[in-house]
Amino acid sequence: MLAKRIIPCLDVTAGRVVKGVSFVELRDAGDPVEIARRYDEQGADELTFLDITASSDDRGILFRIIEQVAEQVFIPLTVGGGVRQVEDVRNLLNAGADKVSINTSAVLNPQLVADAAGRYGSQCIVVAIDAKQDVPGRWEVFTHGGRKATGLDAVAWAKNMQALGAGEILLTSMDRDGTRSGFDLALTRAVTDALEIPVIASGGVGNLQHLVDGVKLGGADAVLAASIFHYGEYTVQQAKQYMAQQGIEVRL
């Protein structure tokens, strides 16, 4: 049967991998190409690169990073951050990305998701949603790296994106991101139950049981984590072995 995916996430700025807490306080974690190669060797199922500053200066650096990774690593690569038009999608795919993740621009211009999926296929369009609990059972979508409230309900928004052609949802809990206290399982469950397309749970992983909970309790199709892998706490292989011991189907 299909394996649940483990996806290390590399937040990239100025050519380096960094990691923050609740979207601030960035800490250097190393060279993206080297880190990507290490995770591939450890058995990562995919890799996600997020260009967290997405300034025009950094854009060229990001393209070179993706090109270098794509020459050496033969697993799916998702790249996001600063994708504003269909041309950005094309450029990232040409650089070696297999999927492109769209976040703020999907809110500002939902037609971009439809156009990009229509042109390149749903399989390569990931819509990233940053959500924050409003009241229990309701989560609001934020944009601009978590700085701007939109008033949109995360579950309704995710369904809307599915209808426009998104192939997958990358769902980040802003309340949990960087806290190491585990995924927002209620949020994950609410979104995954509402959708036909796969959902990647993100935000809050601090130990391997959190990954298991994301799949078993949250119903996630894939789990994304950054800091537990970056600082050598756990390898991807250890994460997979632990999940397998807990009865989750993984690629070992």
Partner: peptide, 13 residues
């Protein structure tokens, strides 16, 4: 009894 998503996406045997 878990829902299987479409597209079928990921690593399968």
């Amino acid at each position: 009894g878990n829902k299987l998503k479409v597209p079928h996406m990921g690593w399968n045997q």
